[in-house]
Design a protein around this nucleic acid. Structure first.
Lengths: 301, 301
DNA sequence: ACACATTGTTTCCATATTGTATACAATTTG
DNA sequence: CAAATTGTATACAATATGGAAACAATGTGT
């Protein structure tokens, strides 16, 4: 009895929640399904399912076995396609993590576009900011803003977005329009800690570079509240163009200090450093790297 | 034909360098060995061995297949023992990387002691300083000195060693004995870039902490040349006790500024962040953490 | 509450596969 | 150049595989 086959049957039974369902999926008899599972249980000397003739649930051991089985099966598949040099299609589940705004506005549309090409692939998106433990959470790819100094994660720059300083017209009318970086010290600058450059805003003018440590009436770890506050006249913000572009078009926000250069925000795709990269990860990285720069209104990196 | 069995046969054949040898190891007939390999080759549509009736060599595809096969087989074994809750003995090969001096003087003896308990385990030691790419090099555990800021590697503090400032008696007679941290600026301080605190020596005296940036006539990326130079009167060094302890005992070096406190050197074992830690890694970490602090002459962390 | 349908399991059996023994050709070694 | 050893091919016995049908257990619908 091929153990890998049995493992596969096990995974399918666990997913289907029934022997009969899995048997139909795999096009085998119900009898064989039980035999495979029994074989595994005998070899492991461990019950994998709690079954009362009518309902199925994984035991604790079964839960762990399932998790690892899937990994092993994927590894084997990867291995075989790598050796056969058959560039197999991405398949399985791609779990991706991104900051909320860019995730919702850009990564997610990219995802749906990407999925069209690969019917055997499904995707799981987690939108949250800050550092994520890729391994523990089983994340395949994370999107990070700005540089990340972590040697055992691999980061690939997939796009850049220009940073713009802006405020609502009302605010500027009330407090005046800052002309120089130093003027910002007197202003209320709203800070998003999740997006570089945080509270150290660096400008490149005719006279060289200048960095201003700004403060203000509001800080947050997400871009949306900050953007909103700025629209409502609470202060000056420095955010990537992809977040405030629309507000600027609509006149809700007004760009200031355009004469100064600001190093653009760099957007990275980050993935765990593995010896062999799975097809789905490699493929999506290539895709997003080609797709994103155009949509985000900037040149490719 | 059980594919995992076939994979195992393949690995054994590759290692033995012959079908007959592997067959004897596995206690099967030579005929079966060929059948297993042919089965794999047929499924993969790829030749794994170049065989001229009398000699064997892996094809390029075979090389890669071997590498991955071993990983998969280990994973499966790990999985089964994890699920069975049988704490299986460490087995396979443990590849460990350590800075040269501590590697030769402490890790290596620990290793031989440790190996006694586990007959199925073999070890591969790489002695080199600096950062190592654990994944690419297939290293299971690396020993680092001082703090490491890499979020996706896990670091466990396994010992500390006090740092001592010392110089040869001849040097001190010739240049005088420094009494205060500031005196060091006038002295030749030999720096080892591989061991913190490098050229920023921090002392804790009655009057608080003081950090001195030292310079001197020699720098190196390994402790030995520095130690040697100091013994030969080239200057003052700050090195962990486990390196210079013997020289101090023998009178070749003389400790100075003992009245100042120096934060001890922290010794870490670092391993890749994986969801499931293999028995051999977990077990060795526990061992070294219990073993090293006593031998290195310091309290456990 | 009760018949029914569906589920997981067991039994039986034809078929396919596995593994060994043996024979054979090719090649190295003494 | 003989002898031993290697990888492979063939034949055959033992075993395992997989499906059909029977069976027992449990929800479900009326």
């Amino acid at each position: 009895m091929d153990k890998l086959t049995s493992m596969n049957v096990f995974v399918r039974v666990a997913k289907a929640g029934s022997f009969a369902g899995a048997a139909k999926d795999l096009d085998i008899s119900r009898a064989m399904a039980t035999k495979h599972i029994m074989q595994l249980e005998n070899e492991l000397n461990t019950r994998l399912f709690n079954r009362t003739t009518r309902s199925l649930s994984l035991t604790e051991a079964g839960e762990e076995y399932l998790d690892r089985c899937q990994q092993v099966l994927l590894d084997v598949e990867e291995m075989e396609s790598a050796v056969t040099k058959l560039q197999t299609e991405p398949r399985g589940t791609l779990k991706i993590c991104a900051p909320p705004v860019i995730g919702a506005t850009h990564i997610s549309p990219a995802m749906t576009e990407y999925l069209k090409s690969y019917p055997d692939l499904s995707v799981e998106m987690v939108l949250k900011g800050g550092q994520v433990d890729l391994i523990d959470e089983g994340v395949d790819i994370a999107i990070y803003l700005g540089h990340l100094n972590d040697t055992s994660l691999v980061a690939r720059k997939i796009a850049t977005s220009s940073l713009v300083v802006c405020a609502s017209p009302e605010y500027l009318k009330l407090h005046g329009t800052p002309q120089d970086p130093e003027d910002l010290i007197e202003h209320s600058c709203l800070i998003n800690w999740a997006i570089p450059p945080r509270n150290k805003w660096r400008f490149k003018g005719i006279l060289g570079e200048r960095t201003v440590t700004v403060t203000g009436r509001m800080q947050a770890n997400m871009a949306d509240p900050i953007r909103n506050a700025a629209v409502n006249g609470l202060g000056v913000i420095m955010l990537p163009h992809y977040i405030v572009g629309r507000d600027i078009e609509m006149g809700r926000l007004q760009v200031i200090m355009e004469q100064y250069g600001i190093a653009p925000l760099e957007i990275y795709a980050v993935y765990p450093h593995r010896k062999y990269l799975s097809a789905k990860v490699r493929s999506f990285l290539d895709f997003i790297q080609a797709w994103l720069p155009h949509r985000i209104g900037m040149n490719p990196p």
